[in-house]
Amino acid sequence: MNRKIEQGFSSGLDRDRATETPIPVDSGLSDDQRRRVKSEVDITGKCCEGGSEGWTG
């Protein structure tokens, strides 16, 4: 049976498949990859100093 949600965050969904759970937007990185990216960004200074000049390491 396809009962549509009348009031909710998404329209036109099948009620039986709709969720009540929010999902954080995924960066796609594993914990290890995130650590390595952080370390690299920290070393190169990307996104830290000199924003007005746009230095990014």
Binding site: I5, E20, P22
Partner: peptide, 12 residues
């Protein structure tokens, strides 16, 4: 950033 649940009810 969080993608909201499909259903807007008290629990969600």
């Amino acid at each position: 950033v969080v993608r909201l649940p499909d259903i807007a009810n008290k629990k969600s």
